[in-house]
Each structure stands twice: as structure tokens, then as C-alpha cells.
Amino acid sequence: MTVPSPEDAFLFDLSRAYAGERTALQILEQGAGEVVDERAGAVLTRHAEETRAQLRGLEQVFSLFDAQPQALSCPALEGIRHELDLFRQQDPAPELLTVTTLFANLKIEHNEIATYGSLIDKAVLLGQLEAARILTMIAEQDEETAATIGRLIHELLLEMVRDSGSATEIAAAGGRAAPHATS
């Protein structure tokens, strides 16, 4: 396949984003059925609904260009799916599968934020401000979802270590650093 013009390059990238959203939806739907924490299930279910709406938004962008998504895959999200599948094969404790599923979804969101940032810039360069507006709305949703998932991961990890005696040290470190071993 050749990409002869900036518009063709944009539509190629948009098709990859569309494929990524479809893959993300599959990961979300599977994860929502596996997690043991009700909050995690609710976040993943809400994220799946948001992803369906984002797919419709991407279809609107394609229509602005009088185009259809190309039949592509998204290697980045396929890689995240593969990582999660490998972890599932390790027969993890349900709480660990829940947190790992959320981490996978956080990776998805950060990938999408970067992808949409690039697509927004390209849409503006092409003079397609309506496309840029739709893509910006999707990117903002992804940023909000990433923040929600990040907070929930933090809460769940703190709850997991609450009884271990190191929760205070982890909380004091902002949840971002493991406590130092003492001898």
C-alpha cells in the first residue's frame, strides 16, 4: 500500500486508531467479566460504553473525509492484549488479575492519548477542524478515564497491602515508590 498524500497518511493513522479502539473494546469486555472488584467492573463497563461512542466518533471523522476505515490492526494494543493473556495463563489470584487488567487498560488509554494527539495535529494541518474537534473530545475522554483508572489502581493496591503493615510507608510515598527494606 502506498500513502501518496497527507490525507492518505491521516486516514491510515485514523484506521489504526479505529482498529485500536475495536481491540480495546474486546479487552474491556473480557476484563469487565473477570475482575472481582465492583468498582473495577464498573469502570471497565463504563469505559467500554465510552469506547463504543468513540468508535462512532471515529466513523464520523471518516465520513468527513468520505472514507471508510481500512482493514488494519493496531500492533500496540494487540501487544497489550498479548501481555494480559500471558498473565492470565499464570493463574493469578483474582485481586492481581483485577489490578493487572486495570494496568493494561491504563496502558491502552496512554497509547490512545498519544495517538489522538497526533491525529488532532494532522487534522488541523489538513484544515479539517470538525475532525480535530471530534478527536479532541475523544482525547479528553481518554485523559479523564486514564486518571480514573490510575486512582482506582492506587486505591486497590493500598487496600491489598493494608494489612501487611507497609501501607503507611507506601501511602507516605504517594503510592509511587516501594517502601525501603529495613534490616
Rank of each mutant, 00 (worst) to 15 (best):
residue 2 T to A: 12
residue 2 T to G: 09
residue 3 V to M: 10
residue 10 F to E: 00
residue 13 D to P: 02
residue 18 Y to W: 09
residue 23 T to D: 11
residue 27 I to C: 00
residue 28 L to S: 01
residue 29 E to M: 11
residue 30 Q to G: 14
residue 35 V to I: 10
residue 38 E to K: 12
residue 42 A to P: 03
residue 43 V to N: 01
residue 47 H to L: 01
residue 51 T to L: 00
residue 52 R to H: 09
residue 52 R to K: 13
residue 53 A to Y: 01
residue 55 L to D: 05
residue 57 G to Q: 08
residue 57 G to H: 03
residue 63 S to Y: 07
residue 66 D to L: 12
residue 68 Q to R: 14
residue 68 Q to H: 09
residue 71 A to F: 03
residue 75 P to I: 04
residue 76 A to N: 07
residue 77 L to R: 03
residue 78 E to N: 11
residue 78 E to K: 11
residue 79 G to S: 07
residue 82 H to C: 10
residue 87 F to S: 08
residue 94 P to C: 06
residue 94 P to V: 07
residue 95 E to F: 08
residue 96 L to K: 14
residue 101 T to K: 09
residue 105 N to D: 04
residue 106 L to E: 10
residue 107 K to M: 13
residue 110 H to P: 06
residue 112 E to I: 05
residue 114 A to M: 07
residue 119 L to G: 00
residue 120 I to C: 00
residue 121 D to Q: 15
residue 121 D to G: 15
residue 123 A to Y: 00
residue 136 T to W: 03
residue 137 M to H: 14
residue 138 I to R: 04
residue 138 I to L: 10
residue 139 A to K: 14
residue 140 E to F: 06
residue 140 E to A: 12
residue 140 E to N: 12
residue 142 D to Q: 14
residue 143 E to V: 12
residue 151 R to P: 01
residue 163 D to L: 11
residue 170 I to E: 00
residue 171 A to K: 09
residue 172 A to R: 11
residue 177 A to M: 09
residue 179 P to I: 05
residue 180 H to N: 13
residue 181 A to C: 12
residue 181 A to S: 14
